[in-house]
Design a protein around this nucleic acid. Structure first.
Lengths: 225, 225
DNA sequence: CGCGATAAGTTGACATCGTCTACATACCTG
DNA sequence: CAGGTATGTAGACGATGTCAACTTATCGCG
């Protein structure tokens, strides 16, 4: 029962990491910023977003309660950082589906859909944090988070545009069509991670079939007719 | 600037309201339970779910901070009560769509879809509370909330079953098909109320078109083929 | 009609949290 | 080596949810 995590013995003092902006990477105590993010991701997975307190994260990182304020201007900013990592990961899995099936648009579509669903179920708490109302989110602030989200969304838009050109998917504003296709996947995932599909719990086989139906539904909903 | 709301002068002492369960209706101070729910719904609409503090609600109702505990065992229970009212309202608007178009299944489907979207946009904060992670939700506890949710969902299942019989919608497990159709609507609404569709903000005309596309997508996704 | 039980409301206290201000320390740069 | 700045710490404040103990009003029953 670890009440007090002793300060983690970092491998390197490590201020060697490229300085893309202006102010980064702690100097005399190891890189707290990433330590906080890592602890947060860990805690998020184990206990959910409500457990992500600034003081708790500080405790886990072995620093004092107000230390995080040197790296995040508020709790929301820290949550935004964690959510951002989620969007990066989501984009990765979507790109992976693309690279495996880029030639066949229909296969690409289905693979991307399953990747999205797989991410939501595999990182349920992360998914909730990314899309739920756990923090204040104003797109024109949180620009970094916003861009990460757009980066993930863009992979879907790319898929839709390609599929429109090949005649698989209906014509029309690519944004609107992308949102329509995305909505189907997202709605299913959102309902599932928030436990609103208790019809399916305890029946993993039915859940799998429903997930596949949803992936197909997403495609059929926007298929060219 | 009402700092202290004086105790509301109730029209009647009012313990005359049908006693469906066993323990209800406050005795010596007016009916606090409903006053709290009403204040909560009001505050929810104005300020969002985070503003729904037990103490704040008590303040608005003109009672002391711990008085709500005589009617709700915790803050979550109060939120659940408010969310439950939302599901009742949602069911109402879905039933209204049904009664206006029951004969034509396709019209019924589209009307129900638009009603769902209309509810989400018209009661955005309520919608977030109902489906987001603002409170702990375990279906086997919160049975009242759970049933209210199922009541609303059932209107969609009825629609799907009827549409399957008339050949509009594909065959298959009605639950799974209902979830697939619902997912499309819900995903769009969820993304919108959480401000994840900033592509559309400031362009209400595009938003309207996208909403209609989504309603159609929901149907096309499960249409018989 | 009166009296006890009980529902309803109040006050006080506690632990926790996010955040602010002021202070201390380590590191880098000139 | 000196000074500045990035980083970390301690203390305090107001706010919240919840518990325990106490008070008051209302109901039900003999």
């Amino acid at each position: 029962m670890p009440f007090k995590t002793p300060r983690k013995p970092l491998a390197q003092p490590a201020p060697a990491k490229g300085r893309r902006k202006a102010v980064q990477e702690p100097y005399h105590h190891g890189n707290l910023r990433e330590a906080l993010l890592d602890a947060g991701i860990q805690l998020l997975k184990e206990q959910g977003a409500e457990a992500l307190g600034l003081r708790e994260l500080a405790r886990q990182a072995g620093v004092s309660r107000t230390a995080p304020y040197r790296h995040f201007e508020s709790r929301d900013a820290l949550l935004a950082g964690i959510a951002e990592q989620g969007f990066v990961k989501l984009r990765e899995v979507l790109l992976q589906a693309r690279h495996q099936h880029e030639a066949d648009h229909e296969a690409w579509f289905i693979a991307a859909s399953k990747a999205y669903i797989g991410f939501a179920f595999g990182y349920a708490e992360h998914f909730k944090l990314m899309f739920g109302g756990y923090m204040k989110y104003e797109p024109d602030q949180h620009t970094s988070l916003h861009e990460a989200g757009n980066g993930a969304f863009q992979t879907l838009v790319d898929l839709i545009v390609a599929s429109q050109e090949s005649g698989l998917v209906m014509k029309g504003d690519p944004m609107a069509v992308s949102i329509a296709a995305w909505s189907t996947l997202h709605g299913f995932c959102s309902l599932a991670v928030h436990k609103r599909l208790d019809f399916l719990v305890g029946n993993p086989e039915l859940l799998t079939r429903t997930a596949e139906l949803v992936a197909r539904t997403s495609l059929e909903g926007v298929r060219a007719r």
